[in-house]
């Protein structure tokens, strides 16, 4: 479980997060939704200790972020930030290989190599393994980054808008893979989802944020309602059902 207690965050004099208090359940796929600028990425970065905590307390699987060494945390959670553009000229396999670094610190063992080839396989990157990152498409590079987090093989996986740049087939493939991780291996995933129907179709738990506050949270059926979503996005939406899950429609 991830617990967030009394977390405030400000940049300069602007309050970005207001007294956030929430729990992300273990062994579930949690989706963070909300309009642009709601503070989803900020909350993700705070949980992933990419940003220093200004107030409050966050624990991940019982480890307090304030007192756990960053190298230790890298074996408990993997985090993929929203902005994955890098200037390095690495091959796909080398980037994915760095996902194993927290475990081997520079001396890869056979099991590390196995995890890397599994990750390459899982994200259909095997044929691109030797290509340079600056010589493949944006979607392929995005998959390489997700594969690196995947290869890190941690109980918790935090992904900020991982579906960016992915076509429909690869987006669906990623969601299938993540829910298989959750249901098959008991791992926990938290992700920021921009396209709400991916949350509707795959998430076990939804946290809706707006203006630096949590507006609603719970299972998809209770959060993804016309009342909550219309207020969340300040725009009228209707919610139907498809295969016994909510289906959000926002056509005029």
């Amino acid at each position: 479980m991830i617990t967030v207690e009394g977390v405030n965050h400000q940049i300069g004099s602007v309050r970005i997060l207001h007294d956030i208090r929430t729990r992300l359940p273990e062994g579930r796929l949690t989706a963070l939704i909300g309009p642009n600028g709601a503070g989803k990425s900020t909350l993700m970065r705070l949980i992933g200790r990419l940003e220093a905590l200004q107030s409050g307390r966050i624990t991940v699987a019982g480890h307090d972020l304030a007192t756990t060494r960053t190298g230790e945390l890298a074996k408990i959670m993997a985090i993929l930030g929203q902005n994955t553009a890098i200037a390095s000229r690495l091959r796909v396999a080398e980037l994915v290989g760095f996902g194993r670094w927290p475990h081997h610190k520079g001396r890869p063992r056979p099991q590390d190599r196995d995890k890397v080839s599994q990750a390459l396989e899982a994200f259909a990157l095997t044929s691109l393994a030797n290509r340079f990152l600056d010589e493949i498409s944006g979607g392929q590079a995005q998959r390489a980054h997700i594969a690196m987090s995947f290869a890190q093989d941690t109980p918790w996986l935090l992904l900020d808008e991982p579906l960016n740049n992915l076509d429909m087939a690869h987006a669906r493939g990623l969601m299938t893979l993540l829910s298989e991780l959750v249901r098959g291996q008991g791992r926990s995933v938290a992700m920021v989802v921009h396209e709400i129907n991916y949350a509707a179709a795959w998430a076990d738990h939804v946290i809706a944020m707006k203006d630096g506050r949590i507006m609603a949270e719970g299972d998809p059926d209770t959060v993804l309602t016309e009342a909550v979503l219309s207020k969340l996005y300040d725009t009228p939406v209707s919610v139907g059902r498809h295969r016994n899950r909510p289906l959000v429609l926002h056509h005029a």
Binding site: I79, F98, P102, S149
Partner: peptide
């Protein structure tokens, strides 16, 4: 090499 991937990735990998 990991550092040149950016602070976010480097911290995420426990560096």
């Amino acid at each position: 090499a990991i550092l040149s991937l950016g602070d976010q990735v480097a911290t995420g990998l426990g560096l």
